[in-house]
Nucleic acid binder design. Structure first.
Lengths: 204, 204, 204, 204
DNA sequence: CCGTAATCGAGACGGTACGTCGCGTCTTGTG
DNA sequence: CACAAGACGCGACGTACCGTCTCGATTACGG
């Protein structure tokens, strides 16, 4: 196993990196992930193919980084502090608010195409799947874990409930409807999910 | 809009169809979906490529039909009556039993590889995704709808609860963990899901 | 070496045979020999492919027979007696007349396309080439041999001259110009050929 | 009319070009032109198919260039000066000598297979035919034109004779016998042709 | 501040698979 | 039994991209 001598990252062209991100996201949005090719990204970015292969092992990795970059930038715009689920004391209301915002994001085509593509690739490409989960999904889910734990400490959730499992009661149904088109995703729907699920983990 | 004259299905070679199903499923299991090619399926099945393209538009469609055929055959083996979730009167016990069986199936590599591949393809290929859901997923989910409705009539579930949404409380978390590797899937896990979720939709 | 049992020629469909000839000649004239296919001939003739393969081993053979049939028919039209080069006593005049008629025929697209195609196929397919020569070319050349021999007996050609070689002096140049487009073919040209060549074989 | 951007010829791989020439000539000699495929040439040359299609539009063009290259190389070996028909003063002897050499070449399978294939293709493919004639055939014929003109100036040939036509009297018969197998080609035969034809154009 | 080594754009290369066309054989009714 | 229709196994077509590999031209550092 001989690895290439790693390229010198300090000499890397920032302009190219950005152009590649933009081209990748644009192409996935325009023509879909499967018809997006490394060659196409390079041409659109005005970049040699080798410049892509020098820094990323595959088009999936390019897209993952591009999307992470996009998410980071969006977060920076939305307020510089690390994101956190609000805690007004009313768990149901807080969860409903967050899920409504998530619904809006999932319906935004700017996010839909690339994240759906990455999710799809992740199903079949184990390695990428893990990175997708670790860098994008799990950090989001941990926000729910923290919020649920806070509620637990105040007695709004039964103490023996595992928050990591509990959060799936309202997050996973939404995820599945979105990914697999098994049903419409609306604010009313997520409200209902919270209503059903929260009572299940409340003290009896 | 010129469509080819549709081939004459009555002349179709049953032997080839079966060989193609077998080859497709075997290859996906052995080398994975992305490295499975139409050419490879044809070669393994001892069939001309054109015989595949005559009847299916893409490898995803071949695999979908092959998998539907497999599922149908498995159902036929397991007893000829249409499958139904058992109703012992104890909703929690019944759901746990069914979900445990589902867990076992999801861990069986014979089902895992092709169904994961189809799910992945379905994320990105809308048309195929709808067929995947309509022919494989939704029929399963309707079994839960019926079982929950029966429980509802007996007062074990609140009357205003929508069973189609309620079932997602325990099915979707399992689906997500399986698809996205967001956590281990075990009998204990699905038992917990039922415990959490069922109380949420029970009469208060 | 097992030959198929030969099909029963008495039951052969005359209508199909004619339709195949017509279709073959028409297609070669319209789209050229290489783009003419057995499938295309069958479709155009309203005939099953097997009906072609039952009676001919290849498309070249179909075309050869079709062309022989055409030539025969043309000959029948032009007068029922077996064709012969006229003998007015003036060898030069007779040869010029015949060659002028040949030029006209070579320029007729009804003959040009198929005979050129057959010639081409014959270059590369030895077996067909021999049949082409034996059935079409050589019979024509033998007419010249007979006419030259008659002239020889009358002392218009040196006795030791081989007529089979002598005829090539004016026939082959025309053939080459036609086949390989190495020069224009006109009445003046063939007249000149006869002038040059005939003097070479005349008594000195 | 959208033409591809022409590939950059300065970047062309000389090694590949030579390997393709060699493979094409070898295959045509070994298995014949019709059974020679672009795929086969690529495989034998250890080259991607695209590398062939990048530089040539068809296998006929590959073979034409390969053969031109071969002819050029053979000429280079045989002495660097441009080839010319010898002029000993004895026209008949000179022509006989050259034609005998031509006979030997036509019987050499190294030349026979590819040039026969090219001639055949040229009959049916007009464009290629013209290139075949212009680059291979006509230059040879012009040698005869020059030699005949020299003879004419010395009074060995009638002044009103057109050398371009006269040369066909001995060249075309040989060509036809070779191409169409209408008769054996030997030294005796070409000697006879010269004897017959030359007298026809000599002063009377 | 200037040589020089790395990255860059460009794109040719050896490959693999694509989806199509046509081959020649085989199969299935029909007259 | 020949026929029309056409599905079949097969092989080649010409194209699209893959990931690797040169090529100068550009660039930014370290002597």
């Amino acid at each position: 196993m001989v690895d290439k001598p790693a390229p010198d990252a300090t000499r890397r062209s920032e302009r190219s990196r950005r152009a590649i991100y933009d081209a990748a996201l644009a192409l996935v949005a325009e023509i879909g992930y499967p018809r997006t090719t490394v060659e196409g990204i390079a041409a659109r970015a005005g970049v040699g193919k080798q410049t892509i292969y020098r820094w990323w092992p595959s088009k999936a990795d390019v897209l993952l980084e591009a999307f992470l970059d996009l998410a980071e930038e969006a977060a920076r715009e939305a307020g510089h502090q690390p994101y956190e689920i609000p805690d007004t004391g009313d768990l149901a209301a807080d969860l409903k608010a967050v899920l409504r915002a998530t619904v809006d994001e999932l319906l935004d085509p700017r996010f839909d195409a690339p994240s759906r593509a990455l999710a799809a690739e992740g199903l079949v490409n184990e390695e990428l799947g893990r990175r997708f989960v670790a860098h994008l999904l799990e950090p989001q889910l941990q926000l729910y874990v923290r919020r649920l734990r806070a509620a637990q400490e105040r007695g709004a959730v039964r103490p023996e409930v595992d928050p990591r499992i509990a959060l799936e009661l309202f997050v996973s149904p939404l995820a599945q409807r979105w990914l697999q088109h098994t049903g419409p995703i609306t604010h009313a729907y997520t409200d209902t999910l919270v209503d059903y699920a929260l009572y299940g983990i409340a003290p009896r």
